[in-house]
Design a protein around this nucleic acid. Structure first.
Lengths: 350, 350
DNA sequence: TTGTACGCGTTATCAT
DNA sequence: ATGATAACGCGTACAA
């Protein structure tokens, strides 16, 4: 087999570029570019030439170069603070599908730092901005205010997912946490509970605050006081610990509303395992969120369910509209409804 | 306040570039570039000039442009087929930390398509290659062989995580699935089980196959036959269904080894909820994987635990070494040990 | 419809 | 140590 030697120099197998394709097809680079850009006019004959040359070379457009040229990376920065809470993997999975379908991709950042102001947060902001993402989805994280502020300054569209920051003019998608809290209060009351406690999440998170506020509102409408309060930091072990404290008192609650399912599992563990109480016979528990069935274990938990699917759809819609409409799109505030659901994995799901 | 008019034209606030910084600092672009590139020689004085100018303008290096120039994106494509199985979110979280610490970022792809050969898979390959990722981590997915082949062709370093493909010269990180199967067999035997069944995952996945092979090996060493077999496709509902079938027979097994925890939860649901059997009194169940404590619910499952942390560390190490050493690094095959663990969320974890 | 030439923001090369 | 200049691969006026 004869070795063809290229006129200039023998370059080691490198990715074929648009120029290579143009040369092989005997057309200009613009013709090739147009062939791979939908909505442009190319003659059928040249298009065929280009495509065959491209196939022969195994050509693939370089998204990075395109980004530099068009100033659109088609990457969305997704920031979550943890993935323990099974709510988020679920959201991310759907998110990935929706974005992929519209030609966008996920640059993932897990910012699991404790407390704001540490330098991991700064590094994260630094990194995410360097990569020229077209938009950012900020999913419930403690560091959202800081990140949001920086993104605003950089004119990057941002959607706050289940998190309200103090930043003006950022679009927000959240479930009706306040009403969820009210529902929880009414539900526990109707089931006969009278000494009702609350276990919150991260104290200064908007979700925990709103759920608590709604819960208080619901209780006071029923003429009930809040019997006990504690905060589990949205963390499994912390929630377990504070639950044990709360129920070891001489006069413990007969019910508790927990600010998310992740902690609710921990609370039920503490009640049944450590304290030997029966759930729901001795203590009733209501959670909040929407984790997939496989996460419910043997718990049979009553929960306030967020419409994760709707929230995700809304977030994608808002973000991409904002991106593709330039800066002309106004900030929205989208609130999705919640509902009471009783699920268990030992019975068919409702 | 006087309006200064720039000599050329008034550009609407745009991201400051390296050139802008150079102009303001009164130095060349190279000086600026060097200032932001560690390990280069710049005079202290010019460095100071550049930094102050950069700070004044709010300059941030453009990672995309850098990628085009250096041919290193510092992005790692991570492909998973689903996030329901809580094992993967866990891995991704650690992965993110490790990569971030070494200056790399995650471009996430969720390829939850059923069966190979569909065009979603092709689109995924297409996308991931366009973005010039420096390497790919392929986490247990049915489409790995195809993806792996394409990446090999594109000379992109790739690590197969918990998945062995038919591709030569790809580095592999997996736990000792075979030995895990053996352990499961011995464990169930020691606990008195004699009619032992197996519920596998995706039939042609290497993890399921290896676990099954080890299990068979273990059983035959004990002189036991395999009492029943079924496949749950690594899916919650499917596993539930096949478990019900298996245990509704006139002479059901007295124990079952399930190829991962995700399905093991489903199986225990079926046994206790649908069939009214007691676990472990009537039926013993052993799972496989390593899902975080919060996912164990009230199950109190015995499982073969993978060392997820070690696997992730190994994967990152292998991938980055390969990337930074060019193509000179040979393909490795890393196998991490497993161990029997009994965990429950109603008792303190072991 | 097609081709030419320049810009995108950065790094690398080679002088100085 | 510093500066001019050419890549990097692609879009896109603008001209033909």
């Amino acid at each position: 087999m004869p070795r063809h030697k290229a006129p200039s120099s023998v370059k080691p197998t490198r990715q074929p570029t648009l120029t290579d394709v143009a040369a092989l097809a005997g057309v200009s680079t613009s013709a090739v570019s147009r062939t791979f850009t939908p909505g442009t006019s190319v003659a059928k004959s040249t298009r065929a030439l280009v495509l065959s040359a491209a196939k022969k070379l195994g050509y693939r457009p370089n998204a990075i170069a395109r980004t530099l040229s068009t100033r659109r990376s088609h990457m969305i920065g997704v920031v979550v603070c943890y993935l323990h809470n099974q709510f988020y993997p679920n959201v991310i999975e759907l998110l990935s599908q929706l974005l992929q379908a519209r030609g966008y991709h996920i640059l993932l950042f897990v910012g699991n730092d404790r407390g704001p102001g540490d330098n991991a947060t700064d590094a994260l902001i630094h990194d995410i901005l360097q990569y020229q993402v077209d938009g950012i989805l900020l999913a419930s994280t403690t560091l959202s205010s800081l990140v949001a502020a920086h993104c605003q300054a950089a004119h990057i569209p941002i959607v706050l997912f289940n998190r309200v920051a103090s930043v003006q003019s950022a679009t927000t998608v959240e479930s009706d946490n306040f009403q969820g809290g009210q529902l929880a209060a009414r539900l526990l009351f109707e089931r006969g509970a009278r000494r009702i406690g609350f276990i919150g999440g991260v104290v200064d998170s908007s979700t925990s605050r709103d759920r608590e506020a709604g819960f208080l509102s619901g209780l006071s409408a029923l003429g009930l006081p809040l019997f006990a309060t504690a905060y589990g930091d949205y963390d499994f072990d912390t929630a377990k610990a504070v639950a044990i404290d709360m129920f070891r008192r001489p006069d413990p609650p007969d019910a508790v509303f927990v600010a998310n399912d992740h902690m609710a599992f921990a609370v039920m563990d503490a009640l049944r395992g450590t304290l030997g109480l029966r759930v729901p016979e001795d203590v009733q528990v209501v959670g909040f969120d929407n984790v997939p069935q496989s996460g419910w274990g043997g718990y049979e938990l009553t929960t306030i369910e967020q419409d994760a699917e709707r929230m995700t759809h809304a977030a994608v819609e808002a973000l991409l509209n904002h991106i593709e409409a330039g800066a002309s799109s106004p900030a929205q505030r989208i609130v999705t409804p919640v509902r009471v659901v009783e699920r268990s994995s030992t019975r068919p799901a409702v």
